[in-house]
Each structure stands twice: as structure tokens, then as C-alpha cells.
Simulated scan of single mutants.
Amino acid sequence: MANTWLPPAEYIATLPRATAYACLYFTDTDGRPFQLRASYRTEPWQWPGGNMDPGETPWQTAVRECHEETGIAFRGRPRLLGTHFIGDQGEEWPANRIGFIFDGGVLTPDQLDAVVLDPDEHSEFSVRTLAEWEREMTPGTFARLAEIDRARRLGTTVYVESGAGT
């Protein structure tokens, strides 16, 4: 039996849909994770980053979004800490999401003092211990933070999977 190959456009139309985001994970000099409070989402705490624009790589997205959201012009090299997969969330977000979390390194007190937020996107930033973040975040989102922090400390990478609604 011979294989019947579809033209690329027809084949792609049969595949699951996904969007992609990328972000940078920073800590302060005491190893406390840095996060931004979103002014537009149910889960308020997130890392500097956002959705990929057409033609961008995940790394380019992370660096661009970080600059837009914090004023930090990141000049480091790409080091992937983890990949995050979120399943289709129905009408709320009718596609899978794939995230790339890169190591942003350590922010000094002077760098933290120089952070400039876009008030349309974020109302504040904070650095807190993992125990403090756990009290502020949903269990699923905190689990992602803890896994990324662990990967950073161990020099490894991690794959994190979230179901719809986490």
C-alpha cells in the first residue's frame, strides 16, 4: 500500500494548534526569584516574557519582552532552564501553549532599583523566597516556579507540563 502525502498546507491544517511564549528567570543576589505582578491576568505573578511574534525565535522573544516589561536590556547568552507545556484550555485559550524559560542570571540591588514597569501590563515586581512565593501562587504555578528554580540551582533543564486551568 502506497503512502499518500498531503501538500504541506493541508497537512499542517490537521496538526494541533499551539502558541509559544518565552521568558527570563532572574533571582536577586540572595537567590530569591524575581517576578512581575500582571495587571490583566487571573494568576498575577509571572516572569518577564511574553508570546512570540512572527519571525522571532524563543530567545529573541525573551530578551525583547524582558526589555519591554522591565527596561532590562539583557545581554547574556541563552541558557534554557526549562520548557513548559500547557494543554488546550478550551474557550479561555483554545490552543496548546509551549513556553521556553531561559536563565536571566542575578539582578543586583542597583539593577532592581532601575526596573521600569509598563503600568498597562504590570503593577509591581517582587523578590521573595520560595516559601513566600508558595503562599502567593496557585499550586500549579508555584510548582513550575519551584522546578525552574531547582533546574537553575542544579545546572540542569526541566520539562513541566500543566493541564487546562492550572
Rank of each mutant, 00 (worst) to 15 (best):
F26T: 02
D28L: 10
G31T: 09
R32W: 06
R32E: 08
P33H: 05
Q35H: 07
Q35K: 14
L36G: 11
A38G: 14
A38C: 13
S39M: 13
R41I: 13
E43Y: 09
E43H: 12
E43T: 09
P44H: 12
W45E: 14
Q46M: 15
M52Q: 14
M52S: 10
E56C: 01
T57P: 02
T57D: 01
P58A: 04
P58D: 05
Q60L: 09
T61H: 04
T61Y: 08
A62G: 05
A62M: 13
E65I: 02
E65K: 13
C66W: 02
C66A: 10
E68N: 07
E68G: 02
A73I: 05
F74D: 06
F74H: 15
R75N: 13
P78Q: 11
R79C: 06
R79P: 00
R79M: 09
L80E: 09
L81E: 08
L81A: 10
F85P: 00
F85V: 11
F85R: 09
D88C: 05
D88A: 02
E91M: 14
W93G: 03
W93M: 13
W93A: 13
P94I: 05
P94C: 04
A95W: 12
N96I: 04
R97W: 01
I101H: 03
F102A: 05
G105R: 14
L107N: 06
T108I: 07
P109A: 09
P109I: 08
Q111C: 02
Q111T: 03
L112S: 04
D113Q: 14
D113I: 00
A114L: 07
V115N: 04
V115I: 15
V116N: 06
V116M: 13
L117G: 06
L117M: 12
D118A: 07
P119C: 07
P119M: 12
D120L: 14
D120R: 15
D120P: 06
D120V: 12
E121H: 14
S123A: 11
E124N: 08
E124M: 12
F125G: 03
F125M: 10
F125E: 02
F125V: 07
V127L: 10
T129M: 01
T129N: 10
L130P: 13
L130I: 09
E132D: 11
E134A: 11
E134V: 05
E134T: 09
R135Q: 15
R135D: 12
E136W: 07
E136A: 15
M137N: 11
M137G: 06
T138D: 06
T138N: 04
T138L: 14
G140K: 01
T141I: 13
T141E: 12
F142D: 02
F142R: 04
R144D: 11
R144N: 00
L145N: 09
L145R: 06
E147R: 11
D149V: 00
D149S: 08
D149H: 15
R150I: 05
R152P: 00
R153N: 06
R153G: 02
L154T: 03
G155V: 00
T156Q: 07
T157G: 04
V158N: 03
